[in-house]
Amino acid sequence: MSLDDLETDVELASDDLDDYEFLDRESRQELAMLSAALDADTDELLRRAVHVLFQSTTETGRLDFHLRSTYGVTYDEYLSGMTYDQMAGGTEFQQSDDDRRYQF
């Protein structure tokens, strides 16, 4: 294989991206290069890209940051179906403690 072969394969892969009109020129070029280099179809590459983005966003804490700022929970809380306070019993204890605080 040579540089000419690579250029041809990238051009062919780029031509196959007509269904992906939402991609900008740079994204189309990068996706075509990945498709040619990895010998993978576009849909598979997009699935992989979503997994990589999700994993890196989770590992760096950016997902939790955005979830916490928008929804007030973390990804772990979402997966478990309850907040950390609920897991520790903090919410129930505080409510019952507040209810009994002024009773004599």
Rank of each mutant, 00 (worst) to 15 (best):
L67A: 04
R25G: 08
L6S: 01
L31Y: 03
D85H: 03
D19K: 09
S56I: 00
R68K: 11
L38Y: 02
E92N: 05
E30P: 00
L45H: 09
A88W: 01
E59F: 02
D39W: 00
T74F: 08
V50S: 06
S56D: 10
F93W: 05
M82W: 04
T58C: 10
L6Q: 02
S80Y: 06
Q94D: 07
G90A: 08
S56P: 01
R28G: 02
L46A: 04
T70W: 01
E21T: 14
M1I: 07
D9G: 00
R100Q: 14
A40I: 03
G89Q: 03
L53A: 14
S69Q: 04
R47F: 13
L79R: 15
G61A: 04
D5Q: 13
Y78H: 11
D39G: 10
T42E: 09
T57P: 00
R101C: 07
D41E: 10
L6V: 02
V50C: 05
Q55V: 12
Y75V: 09
D5L: 10
T8D: 01
L6Y: 01
D16N: 05
D9E: 15
S35T: 11
R62H: 09
R47L: 14
L34S: 11
Q103H: 07
S96H: 08
D5C: 09
Q103E: 15
Q94H: 06
A49V: 03
F65D: 12
S35Q: 13
Y20K: 07
G89W: 01
T8R: 05
T70E: 11
E44Q: 12
F93H: 06
R62M: 11
E11Q: 13
R100L: 15
A36L: 09
H66V: 15
A37H: 12
D5S: 13
L6K: 01
R47Q: 14
R47K: 15
D24F: 02
G61E: 04
Y102R: 14
A88K: 10
L3W: 05
Y20G: 03
T83M: 07
L3Y: 06
R68H: 01
F65R: 13
F22T: 07
S35D: 06
A32Y: 03
M87L: 12
F104M: 11
T42G: 03
L46I: 13
Y71Q: 07
L67G: 01
M33I: 15
L53T: 11
E44K: 09
L67Q: 00
T70R: 10
L34N: 09
D41V: 04
D97L: 08
Y78S: 12
L38V: 05
D15G: 04
M1G: 10
S27A: 12
M33H: 13
G89K: 05
D64A: 10
R48L: 15
T83C: 08
T70V: 07
V73C: 14
Y84V: 06
D4Q: 15
T57M: 13
L63Q: 07
G90L: 09
T58E: 11
D9V: 05
V50M: 05
T57C: 08
Y84P: 03
D43M: 11
L12I: 03
F93R: 11
D19T: 04
M82R: 15
R25E: 15
A13F: 02
Q94A: 13
E30A: 12
Q95W: 01
Q29T: 06
